[in-house]
Structure formats: structure tokens, C-alpha cells
Amino acid sequence: MNKKLTLWTVTTALAVAVACSPKTSNEGSIAYVTNGIDPFWDLCAAGVHQAEAEFGVKCEIHMPTKGLADQKSILETLLAKGIKGIAVSPIDAENQTPFLNEAAKQTVLITHDADAPKSDRQLYIGTDNYKAGRALGQLIKAAIPDGGEVMIFVGRLEQLNARQRRQGVIDELLDRPHQTLGQVKFDEVAKVFKGDKYTVLDTRTDNFVMDTAKSNAEDAITKHPKLACMVGLFAYNPPRCLEAIKEAGKLGQIKVCGFDEQDDLLQAIKDGNAQGTISQQPWKYGYQSVRVLKALVDGDTSVIPDNRFIDVGYKIVTRENIDEFWAEKRKMAELGAQ
């Protein structure tokens, strides 16, 4: 009786597990592992599919849903079945290093999106966020050529990419010399930076809470009647700024510049309510990862640059190229969802 019950339970559980298992369970010789699930990763997946077709290789895509432990068990499973190459975005680089080193002994290991610089990974595919920040600074300069007050909004400043972007923006607006990624000196958070033309007021964080992001923007408009430009460093920040501006009746009066490629922001760029955005073109992460892995698996080490860093670059999106960019994003989103 009991045995029968157990059998049933196990069978049902297996059936459910099979039914629910991710659509990306296709076998491949290499693997692309993200740090979670997000629309951003779907765009990356599009790049993976592109490269698969171009280089004639099969790549498994794994998106851990339950954090660090989940990512680790995915990697262990991949290693166990003798995968030839892995591109991973480590969730906690510092503490995962010993494990990544183990993995690097058994397979070709590269990092993308986030690096584990102290590990034995072959190379890192990422963006120079400082450079991208400076590009954003140039967008701001174009938005308010006569200068004015600028305020920055971001989810969390504890994240390295956020700090690099912010520093890039400040340095560019204050016309400071360029710094090298990896040795960037960061300015204090609660400080006002006054340049010749531009004043960077403050950086407000919201911990990824949408209503905080919006009320931060609202309060900034209240506090600084002369605010000229609002800058959102994470994908959801610019749309929140736009809403607050719209409700204050200051559309067009306060400029918006941002990062990433949320549809609301793209629409605002098209309508002329936002100056522009810096896109990392997430699909390039996927594309580059597959290209490099394929080469390394085939024994071609010439793809490894001296500094072991491949910059996927960024794209400046403004009203001039918005239609073209948006079309590409749509295409990639569709491809990624497959």
C-alpha cells in the first residue's frame, strides 16, 4: 500500500518535472548560463541563437531561477555530462572563485556580463561601463548644451556597474580626464559636483522598488525647480522619471537620458520627450559568448586578447536612429523568446 503510494508520488513528481522543465533543455556541446531570469537575458538568448546559426554549433541556455545554489547545481550538472565550454555570469564572483577554478580545469570557461577576475576563466565578455557612462554624459551635454542641474537615479550603488556608469557621467560633465576601467576612482555619493556649466546634484537609489523610483523622481522635481536633466542608470529608471515629469507638466522642459532599452523610453525618444539612451545591445553578449566558446573549443586561442577582456561596446540611441534600433530590438526579442 505504502509502496504503491510512494511509486505514484514519484511518478507524478517526475511527470510534473518533465512537463515543467525549461524549453531550453536541448542538448548542446557548449552552454550559456545566466544569473537569473530577466527580459535582459531573453535578448541575450537571441544573440546566442544568432551565433548558433552562424557558427553551426548547439548551445544550451540555462537561467537559474533560485539564485546561487541553483546556478551551482546547473554548472555541476553540465560538468558531469562533459560539456565542452561554458559561458557564465557569476552571481557572487568573489566566493565562487574556487568552484569556478575547478570548473575551468574540466572545461573551457569564460565569464560574461559579470566577471570573476581572480578565477582561471579564459576571458571576460562585458561592457566598459565607465566608457558607457561617459557616452551618456555626452548625451546629456547634447540635451542641455547651455548647462544646468543634473540628477542621477539608480537601483543600487553597491553594484560595480552602477558606480562605473555614474562616475563616467560625472567625469564627462565636469570635463575631467578619462580613467581606465578597473582603476576608476569613485566620488562620494552625497556630494554636489559643480562644474563650469553642469552641476551634478545627487544620486538617489531605490533598491529596485518601482514606487520608490517614481517618488524619488517626483521629490527631485519638487526639490529642484531648476532641474534640467534627469538621468536613469538602470533600465526602469528613465520611464519612472518620464512619468513624474509628465505629471508635473514639465515634459520637454526637463530632459531625460538613460541606459538600456525599455519600450517606454524608446517611445519617449521617438516622441522627442527623452534625449537618448545607451544600449549595451544584450544580444551581443550572447553572440560573442558563443563565437568565442566555439573558437576556444576548436583550439583557436587567438580570440583571447592580452587583457582577457572583450568589450561588446554600446550603442548610442537617439531620435535619429531610433526606428532602426527599435526594429532590431523587436526582432531580437522575438528570436530570444523562441
Binding site: A190, R204, D206, S215, N216
Partner: peptide, 16 residues
């Protein structure tokens, strides 16, 4: 609670 947030922002106290 909302007023506190509002005044933290307006008084320029660190969001942290």
C-alpha cells in the same frame, strides 16, 4: 511613513 520618505528626499538625506 510617506511623509518621512518625502522629507528624506527633500532634505537631501542619503537614501541609504
Amino acid at each position: 511613513i510617506r511623509l518621512l520618505r518625502n522629507s528624506i528626499n527633500l532634505l537631501g538625506i542619503s537614501t541609504h
